[in-house]
Write a protein that binds this DNA or RNA. Structure first.
Lengths: 248, 248
DNA sequence: CGATGCCTTGACCAACCTCAAGTGGCGTGG
DNA sequence: CCACGCCACTTGAGGTTGGTCAAGGCATCG
């Protein structure tokens, strides 16, 4: 596996946080399911854990693969997506540090997971992880919390996909990313977009062209600046929030 | 609370199953979270349970309400929906017998729950229910399974909302309902639609008119029959399945 | 029997998609 | 070092799909 220079900095790198090797030093532990375990218990987790590094172009797993492993994102961003027979794609979400993958599996993965930046991943055998859940109820409880949070996000995304206009979709998307930044103690405003326009389009149910035009529109409205195509300055946060809520 | 003649038969009534009063006699117990508990344990559940009956027009809870209760659907169908400021609505799902409500709550309900038929509901105090989850790990595990299933369904719905055409949306919707029927031991084909065209439209990200036109189109294609506007006969199941998958 | 609500159908229109061309950054190779 | 190709993004022109607006059918209900 070749070491690759990242196309875009991942949140950890941006914050000067090194990739974790040991759970004891892991910066995302508190956010991840692992936060449910104390140092003694986490040794058990460590024993069934393998650390992976993947670069864009590689794939963690494909929709339909046998779901015999579960994962924790330590660093970087992944794209979760589903395909129709003719190639139409829906990105169901972006997995960020602290996110758990493999939850939605009932035998096979229900979506593909591909890095959009260099990523660091903790991998577990699904069966062994389930055993550990049986032993540590707090771990299972944490998993339920994760699932609940994802469900809330999924419902919000349904509202976006079904009923919002392109400009409302992009505004909501930017705010989501901005809120993720602040949750990590990073500034709200220069929002970094590690993913391509195609990824954004497939996430929001639009075409590349409409995404691009909508960014231009937001810029001409004075709501954002676009110093680079993957960096967005939120110039009028209130206006963006109104747009995201559909408040005209 | 007046007893109301149901506009549409609910699955239990259609199958000749009486509304449950006692958990021991409940027909949905195995499908619901309650299935995790044996007769002795379920007595604890019974003690914190209240049985409700609601008719269309009444509301179980509104998006934004304090989420101090959780629910189990015993009979009937509810509509779960979210609103934008200007009244645009997204139906995020329909809750059927055996479904658990209140999972997605983080302090407040993230969507409204309104009956589309007469419904029978088991209500629990959220805190007491959580306590019970702490006591019975199997109950919590069952909740996690429910959450996982809902998450899988939500991802599938995102694909539908973001990337499918109206005819593909309706085809997918009919198949979903048909599969629910067979899961209950009912025939796959005459699919009953307890909800209005408006509900279907808001569920699939369409307008009433497009829903109506698309049913007509499917009928003229010979894929379905529409003896009544709320009863659909699947005439060419294979064709419908191909449409649902986007296979032209 | 009229009023109401829900569904269907038709005509029209605009938003978004499709197709196409143009720009700019970046890496490669002459 | 520059030329070139490649790729991603942007922008423009035009077309199609699905939305909007409006009318009509049909059942239920008072």
């Amino acid at each position: 596996m070749a070491t690759v220079v990242p196309l875009f900095p991942n949140p950890c790198a941006a914050a000067g946080i090194p990739d974790p090797i040991l759970c004891e030093e892991c910066q995302v532990r508190d956010l991840a399911v692992c936060g449910a375990l104390d140092d003694g218990e986490i040794a058990h987790l460590n024993r069934i854990m393998t650390h992976l590094r993947l670069a864009p172009g590689q794939t963690l797993f494909y929709e339909g693969d046998e779901a015999d492993r579960v994962f924790n994102v330590a660093t970087g961003t992944l794209r979760l997506s589903k395909l129709l027979a003719d190639g139409r794609r829906q990105v169901t979400g972006f997995a960020l540090p602290g996110d758990f993958l493999g939850l939605a599996a009932d035998g096979t993965y229900t979506c593909s997971a591909e890095p959009v930046t260099d990523v660091g991943i903790c991998r577990f055998d699904a069966r062994k992880f389930a055993d550990l859940c049986g032993r540590y109820p707090d771990l299972e409880r944490r998993l339920l919390e994760k699932a609940r949070d994802e469900l809330v996000a999924a419902q919000e995304q349904m509202l976006l996909l079904g009923r919002k206009t392109p400009i409302e979709k992009i505004a909501s998307f930017l705010l989501d990313l901005s809120r993720h930044s602040t949750a990590w103690g990073l500034p709200a405003s220069p929002v970094l977009l590690p993913m391509s326009r195609a990824d954004i389009a497939d996430y929001l149910g639009l075409t590349i062209e409409t995404v691009s035009r909508t960014f231009t529109k937001l810029r001409s409205l004075g709501a954002i600046e676009l110093p680079e195509s993957h960096r967005v300055v939120l110039r009028d946060q209130q206006h963006i929030e109104n747009l995201a809520l559909g408040d005209v």
